[in-house]
């Protein structure tokens, strides 16, 4: 930001073309670049760190094993043994969101999870997987998900629409939660950092006052690391809970 009096906290989310193919056609944006980078980093890290397969793991291998066991425990806790079929799916989602959020914490890097279209696409993927697998596995019994057991027949006309709306709201709450947390955190960070620059323009007293937002910025940065990891975890936990619904459709 060249002009210290003009702080623009939204600017960091701007999408710019890097390579574009034809007028108004497909283009390779900075968002896509960081998606490719995240996938590349995940693949490289996991491949290289598990290459030696030593019985006594070194530090790098230990982290990969801990990530594996963490997600494996999460999936088997919420979706049971049958849910482990979906372990690769949940693990990929978890790693993708985690690395994307962590990339966002590096200065000058683009945070693609702060765009709702990306988190919504991920949530929609989960939603479609749950529906398709649920119908494939249970057939029409999958729709028992909308009919809670032990409810008398005459209240079903009220209960079923409520359950349907509750089910349809899942991809929205899943995507909005991740997107809103990341977006709000990054804007807050930028606004507080902007205060430092603006106050600094006021001379000596300004610099003294700028100490306060400086402390805040450091604290919020630490908080954002927590949020970045936590939101990846929440996304993966909810995914495995929804998969559990697809496998065992009765409440």
């Amino acid at each position: 930001m060249a002009d210290p009096n003009k702080v623009d906290p939204i600017h960091q989310f701007q999408i710019t073309d890097i390579v574009s193919f034809g007028e108004g056609g497909v283009s390779f944006t900075n968002s896509a670049l960081f998606m490719v980078l995240s996938v590349g980093v995940i693949a490289l890290y996991l491949l290289l760190s598990t290459q030696k397969r030593s019985l006594v793991p070194n530090r790098v291998q230990l982290i990969s094993e801990m990530l594996y066991e963490f997600v494996a425990k999460m999936v088997s806790d919420s979706a049971g043994k049958a849910g482990m079929k979906f372990f690769p799916f949940v693990f990929s989602l978890f790693m993708f969101v985690l690395v994307a959020n962590m990339f966002g914490m590096i200065p000058f890097f683009f945070t693609f999870t702060s765009h709702i279209i990306i988190t919504f696409a991920l949530a929609l993927l989960v939603f479609v997987v749950v529906i398709v697998y649920g119908i494939y596995k249970n057939g029409l019994k999958f729709f028992k998900l909308f009919v809670p057991s032990g409810v008398p027949g005459y209240v079903l006309p009220i209960v079923v629409p409520i359950e349907v709306v509750s089910f349809l709201s899942r991809p929205i709450s899943l995507s909005v939660r991740l997107f809103a947390n990341i977006l709000a955190g990054h804007i807050t960070l930028k606004v507080f950092a902007g205060f430092i620059v603006t106050l600094g323009g006021l001379g000596f007293l300004g610099w003294l006052g700028a100490l306060l937002p400086l402390v805040m910025t450091v604290a919020i940065t630490a908080l954002e690391f927590l949020v970045a990891a936590l939101q990846a975890y929440v996304f993966a936990v909810l995914t495995s809970m929804y998969i559990n619904d697809a496998i065992h459709p009765s409440h």
Partner: peptide, 18 residues
């Protein structure tokens, strides 16, 4: 935060469907 999004998402979906 989590409870809030759950609540609002359901209302939005309901109103949108209607």
């Amino acid at each position: 935060m989590r409870l809030g999004t759950e609540f609002i998402a359901a209302i939005l979906v309901g109103a949108g469907m209607g």
